[in-house]
Amino acid sequence: MKRIISNISLQANFGQVTALLGANGAGKTTTIECAQGLQNRTDGSITLLGEDPQNASATLRARVGVMLQDGGLPPAARPVALLRHVASLYSHPLSVDALVDRLGIGEFSNTTIRRLSGGQKQRVALAASLLGNPEVLFLDEPSAGLDPQSRLMVFELIRELRDAGKAIVLTTHLLDDAQRLADYVYIVDKGESVTQGTVPELLSESTSAQSHRVMTFEAKPGLDTAALSRSGITCEQTRPGSYRMSGSLEPADLEHFGQWCAAQAVMPTSVHLASQSLEDVFLAIAGAQEQSGLTVEGNKQ
């Protein structure tokens, strides 16, 4: 039997957004589908609102909202009719009209789901997951395919749900989403939870911790940046014309950067300096896993 995930132990609390962060294929979806009871685990234990989700009662299912990565919406259905049907499965559903209005579904309410854009489908799937007014909400890649405006709308809604005391578990491969939304993050790689913590904790626990800075700048492509690197500082061209310096940058490095620009007769079109991001933590962890040659074999937990 092939083991998909192992050694994952996670907890989601009310009033928090818990994020499972990892690359595609890391095991995030399998993990939350086990937690939802949609996939049967072969070992370990899961408790969802005090029950085992593998044999979830209708009452438990009513208390849990699920938004699947692929939507799970019938292509021939029209959004509002589908939402009204899903609402009929609950004794006290939220107002379909209010959700339709809130998520901007009205503008495509009479279009069949197969004709909707990816972002529109995401909004319908999110509305369907909220109809029962669940206490726990599983959102699998909720911002995938969303345009920037819809993304902000969805983020605002997720924060509002969190403030209303819901326990929200979301998966994402977008580090920015996790950094902006999550109260607690589990980084998943190759079916294992490799680290966890609040975003500030993850940033501060990283080896290069507080002094780690990232400077990105845009200039003409193909510049020789060897002179910008030193012990503890790397500089590389990430794509033609985009450069990234990272490490323990100090004020003297900025002065050195200015001198390098003058020597190269380079005028950057943009320069951006930031503290270490979750992306750096993630890349450092993923890189360490790669180097250790870790093989994953365990049980779904």
Binding site: A62, H85, H92, A98, N133, K166
Partner: peptide, 24 residues
């Protein structure tokens, strides 16, 4: 807008008969 979530009744399923008939 929080009226949708904090003031709404607690989540509960419709009766079994209603759920099945609705799906049918």
């Amino acid at each position: 807008m929080s009226i949708f979530f904090s003031d709404a009744p607690r989540a509960a399923p419709a009766s079994l008969g209603r759920r099945v008939l609705s799906q049918g």
